[in-house]
Simulated scan of single mutants.
Amino acid sequence: MPKNPDELFAFLDELGIQTRTVTHPPLFTVADSQSLRGEIPGGHTKNLFLKDKKDNFFLLTVEEDATVDLKSVHTLIGAASRVSFGKPEKLMEYLGLLPGSVSALGAINDTGHKVKIVLDEHLMRHEIINAHPLTNEATTTIGCDDLVRFLRATGHEPEILPVATVAEPR
Rank of each mutant, 00 (worst) to 15 (best):
L95F: 09
E121Q: 15
L76K: 15
S81Y: 14
Y94W: 09
A104D: 00
S103E: 13
I128S: 12
P88H: 14
D110K: 07
D120Y: 07
E137Q: 13
K114F: 10
A131G: 07
L134D: 08
I108W: 05
E89L: 06
T75Y: 05
A104M: 03
D110Q: 06
G106K: 13
H132P: 07
L105C: 02
I77S: 08
T75G: 02
T135H: 08
P88F: 15
H113C: 07
I128W: 15
K114W: 11
L95W: 06
K87P: 00
S101F: 10
E93G: 05
R82P: 09
I128D: 03
A79Q: 08
G106W: 12
A107K: 02
I128C: 06
R82Q: 13
I117D: 00
P99G: 01
G86W: 10
L105R: 04
G100T: 12
V118P: 07
N136Y: 12
L91Y: 08
E127F: 06
H74V: 03
H126P: 01
A104S: 11
N130M: 13
H122M: 07
I77Q: 08
N109A: 01
E93T: 12
F85P: 06
G96A: 02
S84I: 04
E127I: 05
V102T: 05
G86Y: 07
V83G: 03
I117R: 02
A79M: 12
R125K: 15
H74E: 15
A138I: 10
Y94C: 01
A104I: 02
L105M: 12
R82I: 05
A138E: 02
A131Q: 14
N109V: 04
A80T: 10
L123D: 03
M92L: 14
L119I: 05
K116F: 04
P133N: 09
V118S: 03
T135Q: 06
A104L: 01
K114H: 13
V83D: 09
I129K: 13
T75D: 10
L134K: 11
G100D: 14
T135P: 09
M124Y: 14
N109W: 02
H122K: 15
L95P: 00
S103Q: 13
S81W: 15
S84H: 05
D110C: 08
A80P: 06
I108L: 14
L91A: 08
L95I: 12
Y94I: 04
F85T: 08
M92T: 02
T135C: 03
N136W: 11
H126E: 09
G112D: 10
T75W: 03
F85R: 06
